[in-house]
Nucleic acid binder design. Sequence first.
DNA 1: CATGAATGAGCTTTCATTCAT
DNA 2: AATGAATGAAAGCTCATTCAT
Lengths: 191, 191, 191, 191
Amino acid sequence: MKENFSTRDRIINAAIEVFFENGFSDTTVDDITNYAGVSHGTFYIYFKNKKDALRELLKETFDLLYDATEAPWKREHSYESLRESIYGFFKIYQSHWKVIRTWKEAAMLDAEFMQLWHNLVDQITCRIKQNIEYSIRKGLCQPIDSAVASQALSGMIEHYANNYLMKGETVDLNIISKTLAHIWYYGIYGS
Amino acid sequence: MKENFSTRDRIINAAIEVFFENGFSDTTVDDITNYAGVSHGTFYIYFKNKKDALRELLKETFDLLYDATEAPWKREHSYESLRESIYGFFKIYQSHWKVIRTWKEAAMLDAEFMQLWHNLVDQITCRIKQNIEYSIRKGLCQPIDSAVASQALSGMIEHYANNYLMKGETVDLNIISKTLAHIWYYGIYGS
Amino acid sequence: MKENFSTRDRIINAAIEVFFENGFSDTTVDDITNYAGVSHGTFYIYFKNKKDALRELLKETFDLLYDATEAPWKREHSYESLRESIYGFFKIYQSHWKVIRTWKEAAMLDAEFMQLWHNLVDQITCRIKQNIEYSIRKGLCQPIDSAVASQALSGMIEHYANNYLMKGETVDLNIISKTLAHIWYYGIYGS
Amino acid sequence: MKENFSTRDRIINAAIEVFFENGFSDTTVDDITNYAGVSHGTFYIYFKNKKDALRELLKETFDLLYDATEAPWKREHSYESLRESIYGFFKIYQSHWKVIRTWKEAAMLDAEFMQLWHNLVDQITCRIKQNIEYSIRKGLCQPIDSAVASQALSGMIEHYANNYLMKGETVDLNIISKTLAHIWYYGIYGS
DNA sequence: CATGAATGAGCTTTCATTCAT
DNA sequence: AATGAATGAAAGCTCATTCAT
C-alpha cells in the first residue's frame, strides 16, 4: 500500500511531519521511521543521522524560498507593491511553515542551521536595503541608516509571520498585509 | 573559596552561565553542578530536573523584566519618547541577554516557556496597542489595525534586539534607537 | 574492465587484500564487495558469511603451504641443509604473508582457524621431531625431549618469521637464515 | 554479598575472566557488567569503553611482568642459570596467562597493544642480546648476529609458552625448561 | 544538607543477512 | 547470476534520577 514515492522521499516527508509535531529535539529516528513505515536501519541508508536528514530537507526548502523571495523585494516600494509583497511572503511562509518551524528550532540549537536561515534572510534584507538607499539618494525619504532599517523591516515581517503561524492564524491576511505595508511605507517615506 | 551565596543561588548562577555557553538542550545536570562546584546529587535537592531549574531562574528574570518594561511603553509616543524607550529597552535586554537567549531556545522546545515569554511580550504589546488606539481616537493617525500594528512594532524591536545580541553588537546603539524610532513614529503617525 | 577472473575469484582476491589492509575483524562484507567491484548481495551467492570466505581462501593457501613445507624438513639436518630450509621457508612465508597474517589473526579469534594452523605446523614439527629422534637413535646428539625440541625449533622459526614480516623486513635474509640455522644446528648437535 | 573489592576492581576482574572466556572481540560490555554484577552504566563511570578497560588492566600486568622479567635474563648464561630463568619465566607467564592471552589477541587487532607487548619483549630481548654480545667479545661463542639470535631465542621461549598454555599444559615443566635451556645453551655456546 | 556511586531506560548506529527483481 | 534496497538484531554510549552514607 506504499505511496508512489521513493523511500528517501517517504523518510523526508515523515521527518517533516514528526519534526513539526514533536519538535526536532524531541524526535527520535524511530519516530521518523515509524511514521514513514520503514525499518529503523533504512533511515541510515539515506542519512547519516537526524541532523543530516534535516540538512537535506532544508536544502530543498531553502532553494524554493530563496528563489521565491528574491523577486518581490526587488521591485520599487510603493505602498501597493509592498502590500502585495508582504501578502505573497505570508502565503509562501505559510505553505512552508512546517519546515520553517523546524528550521527555526534547529537554528536555536545549531549554528549551521542558524547560518542557513541567515543566508535566506540576508538576501531579502539586502534587497530592502538597496531600495532604501535608492530612495535616500533620490531624496524620496530621510537619510536613515539603511542597514538598521532594512533589518528592522524584514525582521518585523518575519517576526509577525512566526507569531501569526505559531498561534494559529485567526487574523485576516488582508488586514495584516495592509497594516504592515502601512507601517513600512510611512515608516520609510512618511516624514 | 565559595562565594557568599546560598547553594541554590550558586546552582542558578551556574545554570545561567552554562545554558548560555552550551545551550539549554546540550547542557547536562553535570555541566551545571561542575560549574557550580557542588556535587551532582545536590542539584536534585533544589530542583526536580533541568527544566525545573530553568523555570525557577526565569521566574526571577520575568519579574524584573515585567516591571522594567511596563513603564516606558505606557508613555505618550512622541518620536523622542519612543527613541528613549527603545534605547532603554535595548539596554535592559542586553543586561539580561544570557537568560533571554536561553529562554528563547527553551521557548522553541517547550510550550510552557513559550507561554511565559508571550506573557511578557503581551504586556508590552498591550501598552503599545492602547497608545495606538488612543492616537486613532484622537485622530492623530490613520485608523490602522491596532492589534496587528502593536504586534508588528514590538516584534520589530524584539527581533532586532535578538539579532543585534546574537551577532555581537557592532552597531552604535544610538543609531539603532533613532532608526527604529523613526520607522515606528512615521509608520504610525506619518500621513 | 573486469579481469578475466570468475566472480568468486575476484571476491576471494578482494578479501585477501582488505583482510590484510583492515584486519579480519574490522573488515565488513561491504569492504570486500566494494573492493571486488561486485554488489553486496553477490557475496552471499558464493559464501555463507565472512568467516566462510576466510575458510575458503585459507583452504587454498593451506594446500599450497602444506605441500611446499613438507619436503625441506624431511631431509637430513646438516647445518647447510637447515640454512637452506630456513631460507626457503622464509621465502614462501613471505610470499603468502597477506593470507598468513589474516590466518593468524583469525586463529586468535576462532578455534577452527587455530586448529587449521596447527595442522600445518604439526606437519613441520613432526618432520623435525622425526629427524631429532633419528639423530638420537644414531647417537648424533644428546637424548633431549624430541617433542619439546621440535616444537621449540619450529616455533622459533615461525615466531621470527612473523616478527620479521610484521615489522617490515630490514634484516638481510641470509644473516637471518645463517643465525637461525646456527642456533638450531648447535642447539641439537652441539655437544 | 559483594566481595571486598572496589567496583572498579570488580569490573577489571570480570573483564579478565570474560575476555579470557569469550575472547576480547566477542566480549560485550554487558558480558563484563553481568559477570561483575554491576549495571551496564556503571562500566562507563570507570572506563571510556571496552578498549579502555583492557588498556587499564594491561597496565597493571605490564608493570608486574616488566619488573619480574628484568632480572633473570641479566645474569650470566650458564646452562643452569638459563634453565632456571626459563622455568621461572614459564611460571610467571602461566600465572598471568588469562591476561596475556587477551593481550596477544588484542595485539593482533590493535597496534597500541602490539606496541605494549613489544615493549615488554624488547626488554627481555635486549638483555639476551647484551649477554650474547658479551660472550662474543669474550670469545665464549662464535660471532653470530646478536640481534637475530636474541630475538630468535626469546621468541622460541615465548612461542613455546603460548602453545604450552594454549593447549593445556600436559608436559612436565622440568622437561620443557631443560630442553629449551639445552637448545639455547648449545645453540649459542656449542660449536 | 551534601555527596557521588550506581542504576537503567532510551537513543544512536552498524552491519550481516535476506529477498524481490 | 547479479543486484541493492530493506531489515532488525546487537552493541554502543549517555545522562537523568535515586539513594545510602
